[in-house]
Amino acid sequence: MLEIRELTRRFGDKTAVDRVSFEVPAGQMTGFVGANGAGKTTTMRMVMGVLGIDEGEVLWQGRPITRLDRRTFGYMPEERGLYPKQPVLDQLVYVAQLKGMSRVEARAQVQELLERFGLGERGGEHLEKLSLGNQQRVQIIASVLPRPAALILDEPFSGLDPIAVDSMVDLLREYTRAGVPVLFSSHQLDLVERLCDRLVVLAHGRRVAAGTVTELRDAGVPRFRLVLGGDAGWVRDLRGLEVLDLDGTTALVEVRQDGAEQHLIAEATSRGHVHEFVRVRPALSEIYREATA
């Protein structure tokens, strides 16, 4: 498990990351969302040791992370890039060697991964000769070399076509199944919702929300929607509830006092037909908008 504790980074007067804490549990995919400039990239760079940490710490398996630990992490920087004018195979082998693999090992694994992404025949070509989608695939390969202990991916899906997204997702799932913690940032909330076990929301350098998707959607004041056979105007008179919306037979209420919803349902059934009484959980995008507002 990767733990981020009270991480802080200042650039001059500006605090880019302000006492941010969260966890990336083993075998789980943690989505990292937030507007541009919220501090996601800065946080990831600190986790990878690419940027110095002003305050706070990063723990790996319960102890402070070391350079050697980080060397086993897979990392994809924000504006990913490799050497455009170098052959694909050569530079992937180079990256793998920098991470401590022997040349022979590295070649074998790179070739395997290239084949897996349908690039087996193209290892000798210069990176810039590949299509953008294929360049992305090469970048992904670079970040999972050698079999990573954890994956820190900054916007890994940006610019990928849906098919590439799917194969990337498949690959990431393989790693989480093997117990690898994965942290990735994204602007695509639908994707984050579909993929992530957990979510961390950053706004203006602060963590504004964190937890599983269900936890986040359950958090906050419960809301219920009530659809009746007759007019629902009477709902306004009940105590402990705030009516957010009222439209003929339909009412959306927020519970301000514990158990008020029980009175509501009792009252409703005593007054006639109840067509619908349901807890309304906000969509992730709503939570995101509220949290980052």
Binding site: R45, M48, G49, V50, R70, R71, F73, Y75, M76, P77, E78, E79, R80, G81, L82, Y83, P84, V95, L98, K99, G100, A142, S143
Partner: peptide
């Protein structure tokens, strides 16, 4: 080239 392409971050992490 390394700085601009950000490969330097991959290298710096390793």
């Amino acid at each position: 080239e390394e700085k601009q392409s950000r490969i330097v971050e991959i290298i710096a992490a390793a």
